[in-house]
Amino acid sequence: MAKNYKPSTLWTQYSMVKSCLIIYDNIDISKFPKLIVFLKRTGDGYQAKKSKILTKSEIDRFLSSADDKEFLMIKVGLILGIAGACRTDELVNLTVDDIEDVGSSLIVKIPNTKTKIPRIFVVTDVGNMLELFRKYLSLRPPHVKHKRLFCTTKQENPVGKNTMGKIPSVVASYLKLPDVACYTGHCLRRSSATLPADAGVDITTIKRHVGWKSTTVAEGYVENSIENKTKIANQVLVGTTTSAITKTVNVSESNIPSNINFENCTNVTFNLNVNK
């Protein structure tokens, strides 16, 4: 084989193993059912190490408290990485031409992705995110020949993949979070998928946002989200449900109630129709 794999990880990386065997040894592993069963058994109980994620409060705390003189590039990388669920190499290859500032927001294009499907995402004017991006862009010297957005301290040479991949660990170190080394380059993408899952966003929307083809991966984020687990706990322990209930109250000038009481309600939507 072209690459050595641990027995416990062979099944979890089946597609990679299959591709390597076909390319280097011209062997189609799918034609050996007994071997596939063996690989599945060796992979039982194995759990791949996943990067830790940054919470919304941790992101906001870093953006508001870290000094721009030292952390401006880190802040912009964090903003774009979280907003667009970007991989490290996508941030590295991002150019100034890929970002359009339309005043109220930034429209960012990721032309080259791992799945070969271009993505577009938007950074809205939340907090001072647009201000941070514009400040960083204004520091770019006019004589720089390359188009890469992220540059070194002197704003001349493009930032490499290793530096970009350390953005989450730099943030975690500044915030004095435990296990700093566990905040890898994949942290930005995982955080970008977990935050909407915790907010109750549906699977289809998360797939479109992150650019996944597989529903199984997206389901894992929704299933493990704190918001989703809280809803299940309420249904199991308290007996509350999330089914929709419609209540119509007819009010006229001669029949205006002094108050309307709602009890034990969550995620309530009021639709008011005023007829004159």
Rank of each mutant, 00 (worst) to 15 (best):
G45L: 08
V126M: 07
S169G: 03
F270T: 08
M1P: 10
V76Y: 03
L39F: 13
M1V: 13
S138T: 03
I36G: 02
F133C: 13
T152K: 04
R148T: 03
G127C: 09
M129Y: 06
M73D: 13
P196A: 11
L10E: 07
K52L: 11
E58W: 02
D89M: 01
L63H: 01
V96P: 00
M16P: 00
F270Q: 03
T269S: 04
C187P: 12
D28P: 06
F121Y: 11
A193S: 07
N261A: 12
Y221M: 09
K231Y: 09
D125R: 08
C20I: 12
E227L: 11
Q235N: 15
M16S: 14
P118A: 04
I117P: 01
L132G: 08
N112T: 13
H146Y: 04
V37F: 02
T266D: 10
D98T: 02
F150N: 06
S104A: 12
N273I: 11
D179C: 02
G165N: 07
A193L: 05
I53G: 06
I167L: 12
V210H: 10
G77E: 12
S254G: 15
S169Y: 09
T248S: 05
L132W: 08
S254M: 09
T266S: 14
W212P: 06
S173I: 08
G43E: 02
V251Y: 01
V37P: 00
I167Y: 14
T163E: 09
N128R: 12
D98W: 07
T216W: 02
S64N: 14
Q235V: 03
A244I: 14
P7A: 11
